[in-house]
Design a binder for these strands. Sequence first.
DNA 1: GTGAAAGCGCTAACAC
DNA 2: GTGTTAGCGCTTTCAC
Lengths: 380, 380
Amino acid sequence: MSSKKPTVYDVAKEAGVSIASVSRSLRTPESVRPATRKLINRAIDRLGYVPSGSAQSLAARRTGVIGLFMSNLDELDDLQDFTLSSVDDARVEIDPAHHADSHRNDSLYYDQVLRGCELETWRRGLSLMVNLGLDRNEKGLTQLAGEMVGKVDGLIVMARSVPDSTLEFLRRRVPVVMVADAPSDNEAGYDLVRVSNRKGMRKLVQHLVDTHHVDDFAYIAGPDDSPDNHKRYVGFCEGLRSRNINPETVPIYRAGFSFAVAHTITQDMVARHKIPRVMVCANDQMALGVCKALTDGGIRIPQDVIVTGFDGISESETNTPRITTVSQPMRNLGRAAVSTMVQRLENPDAEPYAIELPVTLLLRESSEGELTKEQESTSD
Amino acid sequence: MSSKKPTVYDVAKEAGVSIASVSRSLRTPESVRPATRKLINRAIDRLGYVPSGSAQSLAARRTGVIGLFMSNLDELDDLQDFTLSSVDDARVEIDPAHHADSHRNDSLYYDQVLRGCELETWRRGLSLMVNLGLDRNEKGLTQLAGEMVGKVDGLIVMARSVPDSTLEFLRRRVPVVMVADAPSDNEAGYDLVRVSNRKGMRKLVQHLVDTHHVDDFAYIAGPDDSPDNHKRYVGFCEGLRSRNINPETVPIYRAGFSFAVAHTITQDMVARHKIPRVMVCANDQMALGVCKALTDGGIRIPQDVIVTGFDGISESETNTPRITTVSQPMRNLGRAAVSTMVQRLENPDAEPYAIELPVTLLLRESSEGELTKEQESTSD
DNA sequence: GTGAAAGCGCTAACAC
DNA sequence: GTGTTAGCGCTTTCAC
């Protein structure tokens, strides 16, 4: 197969020029006489030459690679040793229904951000190195991150996928751009790309009040320690206050971002006939749980109860009724992160960048009732 | 911020040893006296030293990075320049219902494979470099791949994401592992990881005949130029023949893997009252289209018509009824690809590996009717 | 066990 | 324009 890999020297010899010309011909073609360039190119593809990335990076002091670090806990379960075996058959399995597992959606979120990074990174002629930084303990994570940081020009880090101390360490070596959130004590220090949770929720509430003239709310909250959850709640309160509704009169139910808990809570409401006019949920999963409990209880959405979610996961769209939600531009989060990184790389001493991407309030049946229906079987 | 990055020399000086000892202490700690090792470690974290990946790779002649190359055409549409702007608001949008876009599922497939690669790559202490190899023309693709190939120890390539000629080029430099399919003329030459399309479909058909005693089939086929489609059809025929049904008596409808086309075709069947007992679809999207048309036409699934799909996309599970399908182990495809690559790297001169992952036949309501339902609100 | 020194393959002054 | 040369930061013989 791949015998000895040809180097600049081989190319230079083959073309009868110096290695400098070869290098120039590749980096700055216009600084080389067309004739020699042709010579060199001929030699290059005669030899099948490809420059060594390592050597280039070492000499040029830049790798052209951006690292993406996000920890994703989903995978831990089935992480047994994977052994290659060419089993020669198809298994059969009865597949009983089960609730959509909540963590699957996390994955979706990450996938989208990753995709955005890939996209933008590619557009700019850079490479992307990905690291999910799985289970490891704090020490392992730090080591993992350390390995990566030696290979990249900059590191994009998903919020809370790495301990703050490690972050500081990484940052001594390369620029770091945070996604979604930065260490609270140092918010001003990191470049940051995030999404306007607060404004999205505020807008949603204002819309509900203005359009549907409702004022009997309940809030289904996520975990107390989630910054997202907190910001959404703040936006919720702002929205209410801006319409002269006192947020303190609105009951909060804590469902920890969980379908099941939200479902139970709502069942209970239904049983007690204690149902608010609007149930604002801090994420889509909970909204789905709420909807199911309501529907099963014979409550109509949105005629009896308006339900809203947050995030814009795909289930919010496939559910019946579809859920009004605040959709996060996940893909663009990734793109923005890369763009920010590129700016930082070009301008190492600039002030910290902090950009906030707008969210989109998607009005759907769970709040608006029947919507315009076009394009039914149009899509041939 | 990140001032001068410390090097081995700095560490050596700080610790009062030679750079060789520093290097050894990192690579083969046991070859260094514990005392000096301690000295060195102290110096290392006093300086915040991180070895340069480029230099390591260059000297060690290996990068520890595996490249993943998959072209994904989904993104082309909205690929306008992305500019950073900190728009300070949330947009509102009426969001009318629309069919699940078919390409979204491709993405899902890629995401899963990618995730599998990431997982396995991480488990083995390697890094993963991803490249979606977007729109470029053939020449651009080749160049893109060329850039990547200089930075990695091996390249995992998704079937048909790169022209065959380029593949040959890449292969001169590093080992290449193909995913899903290899160039037909050279199938024996490439390491290959794939899925048993044929066996899966055969098993499915056999199950249907054996369990439901049906023999009145129709086959909804994908595009003629899809190898997957072809293999599935072959499996379909095999299954029938093994049960003494002549495949030639079974009508084929070509719906090009498209929801919409399958939908139209089925509507037509319904209108003409010309409906088979079983509709075997070459992928899930088409099965979904079929189901919708049948359900809208008042036909019961599976009592009147059994419908089956292929792939195991998430919609096959969220649909009502859930679709019996042959699920591909996408995640494991990625893991297997990385494993194969690692083996190849360790053993450059071994015979080409070709492994085939088993698929899983998931029996669900669209063929079996009511299934055991447990775990309803168990998941607290 | 440890140090000196020779590369790894490239880029970028600096001469010519 | 083109060639010469000195690194880039590390690994790895080879002596000691």
